[in-house]
Design a protein around this nucleic acid. Structure first.
Ligand SMILES: NC(=O)c1ccc[n+]([C@@H]2O[C@H](COP(=O)([O-])OP(=O)(O)OC[C@H]3O[C@@H](n4cnc5c(N)ncnc54)[C@H](O)[C@@H]3O)[C@@H](O)[C@H]2O)c1
Ligand SMILES: NC(=O)c1ccc[n+]([C@@H]2O[C@H](COP(=O)([O-])OP(=O)(O)OC[C@H]3O[C@@H](n4cnc5c(N)ncnc54)[C@H](O)[C@@H]3O)[C@@H](O)[C@H]2O)c1
Lengths: 214, 214
DNA sequence: ACCATATTGTTACTTTTTTCACAATAATGT
DNA sequence: ACATTATTGTGAAAAAAGTAACAATATGGT
């Protein structure tokens, strides 16, 4: 089984597309339908499925229900996942107020901040003082955290939550962090996303027209 | 010259690392220093540079100043870029209040919203009614927009700004959008980022230990 | 019950991306 | 001035990712 990170991302996309198709009343789906809705080739879909041991029916395609169940199980979405946010500033509180994660079985259950003014134990998603982070992670057996603190505080905050048992981190601070390699860090770097856009737009402008290799 | 999207992202990372090194007082840098700070191989650094025609000095490495100038010029950062935000909700306003883009020469100069309650013409980053979007884009010659509206509104909003002349879009709505292929769309999908994390954390948990292929 | 057809699953192939490896060469020390 | 050494720049090799092709086979029509 030769799997790479992109496979997992595509699996998420397949899942989303399948929910949409299901909502439209479809019961089964073929690799090329799915390919179309996700924007990949049908081969890619079948290859991905084969990598994860997902199989359909010759000529019959895939049963959407069963497929979703399998994908969800692969993605570890059998039970809802509890997530915490470190840093209840702009980004942190936008995330805590966002209701869209629930439908994905992702529940942000608390925030933590060093600034006393941000503490609010009775908000829908409560915000606690940073000192309580470790105990909270251990008590509630949290594995996943979102890091939304200023750059300078990021490594220190990461060390703290790793020591407390966090295994996966979504980091918004625009710098590379270091953690034990049992901890997975995903980076969201909006500066770089925008820069990237600027590059492609400027190139297109300079070269007169058309699609740069992406 | 065989260039791909990852090269550009790495170029941004090199740039950030170079600023850090510069701030620490370094004047020149070798491919392996840079590789270390970015987390790639030294070969990769040199190959990337070679692709963009960036050259250093045998045995002497690269002059940080000159290197930054070249990279910035490639990335189209010679002059500051004006960006607008469509949708002044949670994410949209977090972005409008963020001061970190300035140092990258990225200026968010306005927001637009369909909800009259969100309009505020006198805020540091003013928020205007959606109807004014087209005129604003044309008048100010804006190329880049951030899309931070609810999923259902995203395609419609995209159509509007594309018609007005936008060439690059950073989209936060968790769905695939369609635009003329002169328009570049980058996706920030936080649901998928979190799901990805959940996958790697669950796998690691199941298999006892260690590093899944990423 | 059989045939024609559509669609999967997988292997082989192609393309893309990364790494290796080393000749060329500029800097440094003697 | 010359030898030594460190580091670049790049073409070749390897690895990874994606695509195509097709044999196997279930389905539906007759
Ligand atoms: N807001 C954006 O649009 C945006 C865009 C790109 C990147 N980012 C990055 O995201 C991160 C957060 O940005 P933001 O705009 O939300 O910042 P912010 O200043 O609004 O919020 C940061 C919060 O972290 C808290 N904090 C500081 N040190 C802490 C610590 N050690 N432990 C816990 N909490 C701590 C602060 O009290 C504050 O509430 C930053 O690294 C920033 O560079 C933000
Ligand atoms: N907030 C988050 O943490 C988060 C996380 C992941 C994804 N997202 C995605 O980002 C997008 C924005 O999320 P949010 O939390 O900021 O939502 P929000 O509801 O807080 O803000 C959306 C804003 O868009 C405005 N709007 C609606 N239709 C519009 C239109 N046609 N034109 C202009 N403005 C319009 C609304 O008035 C509102 O102010 C959504 O697609 C959401 O799925 C948000």
């Amino acid at each position: 089984m030769v799997m790479n990170k992109n496979c997992i991302i595509r699996l998420s996309r397949y899942k989303n597309a399948l929910y949409r198709l299901q909502a439209l009343g479809f019961v089964k789906v073929f690799s090329d339908n799915l390919a179309d809705s996700v924007g990949v080739t049908a081969s890619q879909v079948r290859k991905d499925f084969s990598i994860f041991g997902i199989s359909g029916n010759k000529k019959g395609g895939y049963q959407i229900d069963a497929l979703l169940e399998k994908i969800n199980s692969i993605l570890g979405k059998d039970q809802p996942q509890k997530v915490i946010v470190i840093g209840a500033g702009h980004i942190g509180s936008a995330l805590m107020r966002y209701r869209g994660f629930e439908k994905e079985g992702i529940r942000i259950i608390a925030g933590f901040d060093i600034d006393p003014a941000k503490i609010n134990r009775s908000a829908p998603v409560p915000v606690f003082p940073l000192e309580e982070t470790k105990a909270f992670i251990k008590t509630n057996n949290i594995r996943i955290a979102i890091l939304a603190v200023p750059d300078i505080a990021a490594q220190q905050a990461l060390d703290l939550i790793c020591a407390a048992g966090i295994k996966g981190v979504l980091n918004f601070a625009p710098l590379r962090l270091h953690a034990p390699d049992t901890v997975t860090i995903n980076y969201v770097n909006l500066e770089i996303e925008l820069e990237n856009l600027i590059y492609f737009v400027s190139v297109e402008e300079k070269t007169g027209k058309g699609q740069v290799e992406k």
